[in-house]
Every structure is written in structure tokens, then in C-alpha cells.
């Protein structure tokens, strides 16, 4: 691309990000500070994920970008176009065909393999931020593995509502050591992170943090023995493909309370519909 390096970032910046990624992988769940750059997209719109993707991407990669599980949401389109433009890489909407998947708010329904890397866009990497706004304080809590604050929050939820009310960005313990934000994925997706064969990388551009979960690493939602973590999912089948195990978007279809439920993962849904058509013929 005219005047810019492959994948936009200059080589010294890529090296700096790559060093941070490697330390993140060596210390699963630990937030590694990095010198995040200003990107040509706004902070909060995926600049952390974009920088991680730009630092790992090669000409042979096949990139998939999703937002809310879908390839055709506006920001997913915008980021995919950015990489087509600055790196010229092949892009795909098919989960199976991608080598690198950048995501906001979802983990694909199709299980990922060891040959794939999942890059999450992270708005607030600090899982304790809603309980303690000072990063100087939370840094000490991580150093001491002192997560009492979060346990108290979960305890209070259960005492008040009967169960934990965190429905997305559910805090997880990684490798038994670090409390980590899984990014604002629905709690439904949380268990997919545990011992996932794919490498999971997390980029927070505005907050200037990178963290990682290596393949086959334990990721456990924080819970209590007598109040184990439970999934929430709309109790419906997908109106398009009939799936009863996928995460659903609720679509309001009129102003008299009608709604339909469809797969949030558009590739998964399309794939299933393709399969069903194949079965019918």
C-alpha cells in the first residue's frame, strides 16, 4: 500500500508488539503493558486487536473478522477492509478456512484448531476495573494474586439475586494464577476458552495491554462450589437453521412484541443451512 509498510505498522513497532505477545504467552493471563500506537481507527473500535493482528499477520494468512459473531457487521467489514488494503491478505468468512480470526464479543461456534489464532479486541483488560478503578491498585492485586474483591462481588450477587448476575465479560482464572477478562464475550462462550487448541491473544489498544492464553490452558470461570457457573442462552432454536446449541441474537420484528431468534454466528448458521439443503437434495 502506498507509503505504508506491510500490515500498516512499521517494523520496530511490530517487534515491540511481538516481544509483548511472547511474554504474554509465557505468563498466561497476565496483562503485559505495550507501547500501543495511534491507529487510523478510533480507540475502542478494535485498535488493540488490530495491532496484535498486524504484528502476527503474514502474506500466507487467511483472515476472518467478526463483530457480534457476524462477518457483515459494520466494524467487522471496516477492519477486514483495512487489512485487505494494508496487507493484501486473503480474507474469508468461513471459520474453518481462517488462520487468524479477529473477534469482538464472540467466540465462533465451530471449534477452533491448533493451526488457528484467535485475536480478541478488548475494551477494558482489567477484570477488577469495575470494582477498583485505580490501575496502580489492581496491579498490586495481580502481583499478590489477591482476588478477594471479585469473590466478594460474586458473593453479594448470589446473596441478593440468587445467582451471579455477570452475563458477559465473566471473570476467569487462567492457569490457576491470573484473574482475566475474557473480553465482553457472553458468559455462554466462556467455557470454550478452557483448553482450547487455538492460541488466544488479547489486545487492548487504549489501555495498552496485551495478554494471552496458550493452547490447552485451563480457563475457569470464577464461581463457588454450591453456586457453579451456569450458561445463559435464549431458550429457543435458531429461526433460520434450527440450531439449539448456538448463541442467539434476539431480533425485534414489529412493535407488538414479536421477535425472532437467530444464530449470532453467521458463518455457523449459513454452514448449517448449507448442510440442511444438501441433506434435502
Amino acid at each position: 500500500m502506498n507509503g505504508y509498510n506491510f500490515a500498516y505498522l512499521d517494523e520496530p513497532t511490530k517487534r515491540m508488539i511481538r516481544r509483548a505477545i511472547l511474554k504474554a504467552v509465557a505468563i498466561p493471563g497476565h496483562q503485559v503493558p505495550f507501547g500501543a500506537r495511534e491507529m487510523p481507527l478510533p480507540y475502542g473500535w478494535g485498535t488493540g486487536g488490530i495491532q496484535v493482528t498486524a504484528a502476527i499477520l503474514g502474506a500466507d494468512d487467511v483472515l476472518k473478522v467478526i463483530d457480534q459473531g457476524a462477518d457483515d457487521t459494520t466494524n467487522a467489514v471496516s477492519i477486514r477492509r483495512f487489512f485487505s488494503h494494508v496487507a493484501g491478505v486473503e480474507t474469508t468468512t468461513r471459520t474453518r478456512d481462517a488462520t487468524v480470526i479477529q473477534t469482538r464479543h464472540r467466540i465462533p461456534e465451530t471449534p477452533l484448531t491448533g493451526d488457528q489464532i484467535l485475536v480478541y479486541q478488548v475494551p477494558l483488560p482489567e477484570p477488577l476495573a469495575k470494582l477498583e478503578p485505580s490501575r496502580a491498585e489492581t496491579k498490586q492485586m495481580h502481583a499478590l494474586a489477591d482476588y478477594g474483591l471479585m469473590h466478594v462481588k460474586l458473593y453479594e450477587d448470589i446473596a441478593r439475586f440468587g445467582h451471579v448476575t455477570i452475563s458477559y465479560d465473566y471473570p476467569v482464572m487462567v492457569n490457576g494464577r491470573y484473574l482475566m477478562s475474557p473480553s465482553p464475550i457472553p458468559a455462554f462462550d466462556t467455557l470454550k476458552m478452557n483448553r482450547m487448541p487455538a492460541l488466544q491473544l488479547f489486545g487492548a489498544g487504549r489501555e495498552k495491554r496485551i495478554y494471552a492464553v496458550p493452547p490447552y490452558t485451563t480457563v475457569r470461570p470464577l464461581d463457588f462450589d454450591d453456586h457453579p457457573f451456569s450458561l445463559t442462552r435464549a431458550p429457543h432454536a435458531c429461526a433460520l437453521c434450527g440450531a439449539t446449541n448456538s448463541y442467539l441474537d434476539e431480533v425485534v420484528t414489529d412493535d407488538r412484541g414479536s421477535r425472532m431468534f437467530v444464530c449470532s454466528d453467521t458463518d455457523y448458521c449459513a454452514d448449517r443451512r448449507g448442510e440442511m439443503e444438501g441433506d434435502a437434495s
Binding site: F6, E11, K14, R15, R18, I21, L22, V25, A26, A55, I56, L57, G58, A59, L199, P214, P215
Partner: peptide
């Protein structure tokens, strides 16, 4: 390209 290819190998074996 070579730095990227080498990095991905380092990333693979670190992972």
C-alpha cells in the same frame, strides 16, 4: 516477510 515468518515460529513454539 522473514521476520514475520520467524516470529510465527517463535510464537508457535512458545505457545
Amino acid at each position: 516477510a522473514e521476520a514475520q515468518a520467524c516470529f510465527r515460529l517463535v510464537l508457535r513454539t512458545m505457545s
